[in-house]
Amino acid sequence: MSAFKSYFLVLFLLLSGCATQQMSGSSQGKQSPSSSGGMPSSSSSGGMPSSSSSGGMPSSSESTNQEGQNGNQSNKDENTMPTQAGISGQQTGQSASSIFNESLGDFDKEMAGERDIIAASNQGNSSMTAQEIADMESIMGADLDGPIDISGDFGNDESEGNNDSEEEFTGEMSEEEISRLPSCVDKEGSGEDKIARQLRVFAIKEDDPNIRNEIWKQYLKHMGIGQSQIEECLSK
């Protein structure tokens, strides 16, 4: 009998140990739950959160389901979403008001992060608005002591043509103009976008070699050529 007693005692201890481990594991998960991939995916079709014409914000029953789903998540991640932080906060005894304030702050951080990403991608992106190109042209024009008429035709008359500066440029180049091309610049201008083409026109038309060099630098930089290669190219 004592052997049986010992057996049951060991079994009981083992079982209670497992149960304790499970409980502590799940509570740890709820304290800092998050999805494994940062921001949780949406089950909605992606409309604005506030409303539709029929009723606005999603119903509270949806919220309850969401809560249940979030509660089951247990992966630890630094990118804990505010929603989940709110739920975990409640379970650690925080008041609804402080959870609310905390989640507002988290949301602000989330949005600030998002805007940083956008700003970074804007910096990396070479696309410019027409106005920015115009500004660039006017700056370049000022540097070059007065605007250069590189466009064939800017007339407003209906019958007038639509010659673009680059269209005119890609026609005939004089020998002098060809001699102004650095060795690393493709004569045909392959791979150039609008801005690069305009920079090339400015550079070729420029008589002052120092200013021309500066414009070529901008051109090569815009074409994604490294600093050392630029210097090497322009020194030749």
């Binding site: 959160p49 969401q66 505010p82």
Partner: peptide, 22 residues
């Protein structure tokens, strides 16, 4: 747009619930 609004929708649901509780 879908990613952002989807994430925010969860947040707004939670605020809605919290506001009622408060």
């Amino acid at each position: 747009t879908l990613r952002l609004t989807g994430n925010a929708q969860e947040m707004f649901l939670e605020w809605k619930r919290l506001l009622k509780q408060i």
